[in-house]
Design a protein around this nucleic acid. Structure first.
Lengths: 341, 341
DNA sequence: CTGTTAGCGCATTCAT
DNA sequence: ATGAATGCGCTAACAG
């Protein structure tokens, strides 16, 4: 009875073949199979082939969990990111992934799009705690791991924290640069606009936009310029709608606009073009990012060095693997890419 | 001596705390700790608190691999995709992820950007074989898993194969629809252009573009219209450059263009606008996808029902979990979203 | 309620 | 060159 029950259980479970099954059918020990799989140790050509053929026949695939449990060799990394739909992040991701793939690491994406996603990470049972390292994009890290001890290797991309490796840009400086650019290119009678994005003040806040705003407004204030601030949705038509609410027809004054990212800048320029306004004659516009699309639009923009950021993040991870203890911080400078606007 | 060595080993390994450590410090059995972690079984409030405090103190996080090994409960899914940088895919991803997150599944992204990535998957040791199911976007599946038996649950998104659940659109039909739209809106003297993307004929080929081309060209041929075909890069300025090579200044004839995706369509329209050509007066343009950006550009486009696709993919996965055996195929219809062009 | 124990699938000595 | 045995960290009976 007991035996039958056991058998039934096994059958019904429809379990995958294991190393044992392979060993049995190949008439060898499991150690030998293991050697074949890992190309380690000495195995005679004959047995190797026999084992391989059984593996093929059974469509056997080694259980990765058993494997890492046994060897402590995980080789996976986490990539925590606000929104993969944003080209900014998907580009960084691709760059990092390409770099890592050669080193046999898996980059697992953890998109923190909502509270549910955040809650998952906060449960210490989450997969993120089992990876060899975590790249965090844009987020203020303390919010994510709060009082909980975070995973071992943490590398911050596009944000800063004393305690962890980081590569980032000076967002306040970006705001200042934008202000100076506009000031330089604007006549006396100019309407200044800041089109930006307001993050909800919650655990997700990255302060990236806030800092750009701050730097920009500070310089403008120093020059006694009044700025009208409009908060837009972070979508392709966000900038368009913002401008729509601001300008109904071509105004008398010159218009100077700082849109805090390309995604907004595209819409802004589109709207102004529709109002027959000519860049540098009727308006100036500067945005931030230098995403591929900004080239198509001939947007003047402040370049975020994405490939450098990815490269440095990668290097910090590798050097940390090799035993580096001291925390590294890389503050990258951003230059203006001047185009049509 | 031996003991010392062992200790050293342990220390130097800097291993994470295990359930045993927690149990020892909390002065309970490991089963109790397990119960606390999983909120299962009965544990007295006193011991629960004690255990939790030790967990906190040790910053203990359960080893997910041991866990799944022991419980056979993996709860992760794969998402195989050509390029997360393409909004088309990142949107599907987000939709799917949002849907799944409520069911406690992790969606792991496997971007097949190059041969290296493909090789990884072909090694049967890859993580992808350990997930509960695989969503595959756009790829011709036989190329990926070739003769190897693929993982259990496979769900095809935006591609079709007899053997697996699939949700897709009829891309030849899309081409036909585009042709009919242009034919309807074009005067007798019209230059027809097809701006499309040529996939390398390798294991990655999805045939999506090829099919759209085919459907389009067939109908055009039926109507005895000659079409000039241009292959563009799949980038934001791809369509722009293609048009640049085609038209130097505003031509005498009416121009009708089918660009096989929005990413190309945006550039096409941008170029025509710069040449002062007026939509529906000087040219017609239809593309495919209906990505968010196509709205900003008032592109007439053939809508791909992304949310439906994600939803159906999700449902197919769930029903398959619940024991459905029969393969399902969902062919979705695509309607024209007529805007400015 | 709680502790003990038997695997989960595999890598890895250690014998042979 | 190869097989048997041990343990990785955990869950799930089982026995108190």
């Amino acid at each position: 009875m007991i035996q039958i029950e056991k058998k039934d259980k096994k059958k019904s479970k429809n379990t995958n073949p294991t190393i044992k099954d392979v060993a049995r059918l190949a008439d060898v020990g499991i150690a030998t199979v293991s050697r074949v799989i890992n190309n380690s140790g000495k195995v005679s050509e004959k047995t190797r082939e026999k084992v391989l053929s059984v593996i093929e026949e059974l469509a056997y695939t080694p259980n990765i969990h058993a494997r890492t449990l046994s060897s402590k060799n995980i080789e996976s990394l986490s990539f925590v990111v606000p929104d993969m739909g944003n080209e900014f992040y998907s580009i960084i991701y691709s760059l990092l992934e390409k770099r890592l793939s050669r080193s046999n690491y898996r980059l697992i994406v953890f998109p923190l799009i909502d509270q549910v996603a955040l809650q998952k990470i906060k449960q210490n049972t989450d997969m993120i705690y089992q990876t060899d390292g975590v790249f965090i994009c844009s987020f203020s890290i303390s919010k994510i791991f709060q009082n909980r001890t975070p995973p071992k290797k943490i590398i911050l991309i596009d944000s800063f924290d004393d305690r962890f490796d980081s590569v980032y840009v000076d967002n306040e400086k970006i705001g200042e640069t934008a202000a100076e650019y506009l000031l330089k290119n604007s006549p006396h009678k100019t309407n200044y606009y800041l089109i930006t994005f307001k993050e909800l003040d919650n655990e997700f806040t990255s302060f990236v936009f806030e800092k750009r705003d701050k730097g920009f407004l500070r310089v403008m204030k120093q020059h006694n310029k009044r700025v009208k601030v409009v908060y837009a949705d972070l979508m392709w038509d966000g900038g368009y709608k913002a401008m729509e609410s601001l300008i109904k027809r071509k105004p008398k004054n010159y218009v100077s606009i700082f849109s805090t990212c390309d995604m907004l800048g595209v819409g802004v320029k589109k709207y102004l073009e529709e109002k027959n306004m000519i860049p540098k004659k009727d308006y100036s516009l500067i945005s931030v990012d230098n995403l591929p699309i900004s080239r198509l639009f001939r947007l003047t923009t402040i370049r975020q060095p994405l490939s450098e950021m990815a490269e440095i993040a990668y290097r910090m991870f590798i050097s940390s693997l090799k035993g580096r203890e001291k925390v590294e911080h890389h503050k990258l400078t951003c230059k203006i890419v001047e185009r049509e606007t």
